[in-house]
Simulated assay, not measured.
Amino acid sequence: MKRLLFLTLTTVAALTTSAVAQDKQTASANFAGADGKDNGRAALTASATGGVLIELEVSGLPANKWVGFHVHETGKCDAATHHESAGKHFNPTKAEHGLLAAKGPHAGDMPNQYVGQDGVLRAQVFDGMVTLDGKDNGIRGRALMIHENSDDYRSQPAGDAGARLACAVIK
């Protein structure tokens, strides 16, 4: 009986270790709109070779429009401050903003995303400059942000993407 119990505890320990390893490779984020109401979700998965895949679906956005999508430095999404609580774009290397900037991009820069006719943004975005671990380029505990306008990929410091429409803390 003791041997059976030992095997069971060993199996549980192995499963727990596996679950912890999986938790370090995945994260989630729940979006809140400018009104503070829940309006979407993101699932994040770390790549074995570096970078993070972000799969998101967010509703209640302006239809038929390109919008900016970034990682912001602070994991706070306070609708009362129009999500300004999320701080600036995540930029651990102090690079210039913009995918087309001569001295950019920074880690929080990602391509614009298109919102469909139904006002829902559905996307899969890969950011090769970030991780989910606790390193300098780690984004767990930071925020994902959807902006009102498209990012021009050049203007400093934030691409002239406009108001913050939806924010999600990465957990």
Score class of each variant (00 low, 15 high):
101 A>C: 02
111 P>H: 09
114 Y>D: 02
129 M>L: 11
87 G>W: 09
86 A>C: 08
61 L>A: 12
97 H>G: 00
73 E>L: 15
52 V>K: 13
136 D>Y: 04
52 V>H: 13
144 L>P: 12
54 I>Q: 14
126 F>A: 13
90 F>L: 08
65 K>R: 13
100 L>R: 04
62 P>K: 11
74 T>Y: 14
115 V>R: 05
60 G>N: 09
54 I>L: 12
77 C>W: 06
91 N>W: 01
140 R>H: 09
93 T>R: 10
89 H>W: 01
83 H>P: 06
105 P>I: 11
51 G>I: 04
139 I>D: 01
104 G>D: 02
74 T>N: 13
121 L>F: 08
70 H>M: 04
100 L>E: 09
73 E>Q: 15
71 V>Y: 14
124 Q>R: 14
118 D>W: 12
59 S>A: 14
132 L>N: 13
80 A>G: 12
108 G>N: 04
49 T>R: 15
82 H>C: 05
116 G>N: 11
78 D>T: 08
79 A>L: 11
124 Q>M: 14
63 A>N: 05
131 T>M: 05
146 I>N: 05
144 L>V: 11
108 G>W: 03
144 L>E: 13
50 G>F: 02
145 M>D: 10
71 V>E: 06
88 K>H: 07
90 F>A: 03
92 P>T: 05
87 G>T: 08
111 P>C: 13
75 G>Q: 03
74 T>R: 14
95 A>Q: 10
101 A>E: 00
113 Q>Y: 03
122 R>A: 00
90 F>H: 10
108 G>C: 04
69 F>G: 07
137 N>C: 04
135 K>P: 06
65 K>P: 03
78 D>Q: 10
97 H>M: 01
50 G>K: 09
60 G>S: 10
58 V>Q: 07
65 K>Y: 01
85 S>M: 05
141 G>V: 06
56 L>E: 15
121 L>C: 14
70 H>R: 11
137 N>V: 13
76 K>R: 12
133 D>R: 08
53 L>N: 11
61 L>P: 03
113 Q>D: 06
129 M>Y: 12
144 L>W: 09
65 K>V: 05
73 E>C: 09
118 D>V: 07
68 G>H: 14
120 V>Q: 12
74 T>E: 10
143 A>P: 00
117 Q>M: 02
67 V>A: 15
122 R>C: 00
66 W>K: 15
